[in-house]
């Protein structure tokens, strides 16, 4: 009887976690498309690394106790925001890639150093290094899964609502700025991105969460030439892959969720690139064919 109860609890928890990861993956994918179009892919990576010192700061403030999802969200967002601010500050006097490298190594080093120090303190409830870096969604408690679903739904809905404005800013930022869009929109976009990354770190890991953001965007480019269609493809891919990764992780607990999701994404991207290359459907192939159509029309 006891075994049956334990099995059912595991079963329902996996269902909730699976749902949470699917919605989170979908929201991450949609944000990822805009990140790629706005050329913010590496900034998202920097932000993800910056969540670790923020989370550890929260644990320290709580005296070593395990943080609630709200604290995880706040700590992660503060850490990521500070890292992005540092990146922005570095860019004023350095090239973009140098600033990016410095911000990445700083956030990674600060996070790793603080983690090593805190793990030696008595009474500190920290997950293992592997779980923090590579994620372990299957072991996520129900309350955390519900928080992840809530934050992901909010992020997804807001991003979809803002999509036309974001498209306008990406295509022609100065004309958009003239009409009052621009700075505030970028701020809201970053807030959504940081919130999702902060909440997704526990499930997918500090190092891997950015893969859930960027991989679907890259794969979706193989399947359609139009931005709205790419968003739909990315959302679909983003939902399916992490869900499969959760099942893998639940079946084989040694497999971390984030790492398996990223490997599955990489496999799907490789297959997509191969298929698109073979059928001339890739972004370049499609462009070339459509450009020829346009040239014919002009002639």
């Amino acid at each position: 009887m006891g075994e049956l109860v334990a099995y059912e609890a595991w079963h329902w928890n996996v269902v909730w976690v699976l749902l949470a990861m699917a919605i989170m993956g979908s929201a991450a994918a949609v944000l990822g498309c805009f990140s790629v179009w706005m050329r913010l892919g590496l900034s998202a990576d920097v932000a993800a690394h910056g969540t670790l010192p923020g989370l550890l700061l929260v644990v320290a403030l709580l005296g070593g106790a395990a943080p609630s999802p709200l604290w995880v969200l706040l700590g992660g967002m503060v850490g990521a925001s500070l890292t992005l601010w540092f990146l922005h500050w570095m860019r004023r006097s350095n090239s973009g890639d140098a600033a990016m490298a410095v911000a990445l190594s700083l956030s990674f080093g600060a996070g790793l150093g603080t983690l090593s120090w805190m793990q030696q303190l008595p009474g500190t409830m920290l997950p293992g290094l592997g779980q923090l870096f590579f994620g372990f969604a299957a072991g996520m408690p129900l309350s955390e899964a519900l928080w992840l679903i809530g934050v992901s739904v909010v992020v997804l809905v807001w991003t979809v609502l803002l999509a036309p404005r974001l498209a306008s800013v990406i295509h022609n930022s100065q004309a958009a700025q003239l009409l009052g869009e621009g700075a505030w929109l970028r701020l809201v976009f970053f807030a959504l991105l940081l919130a999702l990354i902060a909440m997704g770190v526990r499930a997918a890991g500090v190092v891997m969460v950015v893969g859930l953001v960027l991989f679907p965007a890259a794969t979706a480019r193989c399947w359609h030439w139009h931005w709205r269609a790419q968003l739909r493809w990315a959302a679909l891919i983003g939902a399916i892959v992490p869900a499969v990764a959760v099942l893998l992780s639940a079946a084989v607990p040694a497999v971390p969720t984030g790492a398996s999701a990223v490997c599955l994404h990489a496999l799907l991207l490789t297959l997509s690139l191969t298929y698109c290359w073979g059928t001339a459907r890739s972004a370049h192939g499609t462009d070339a064919r459509r450009r020829n159509d346009n040239v014919e029309r002009l002639a």
């Binding site: 179009w37 036309p164 498209a167 306008s168 990406i170 022609n172 139009h226």
Partner: peptide, 18 residues
């Protein structure tokens, strides 16, 4: 202008109505 953003002529013109 970011010409690499995959948007159609019609959508760009629609942005004028924003």
């Amino acid at each position: 202008v970011d010409w690499s953003f995959p948007v159609t002529v019609r959508e760009v013109v629609q942005m004028g109505r924003f």
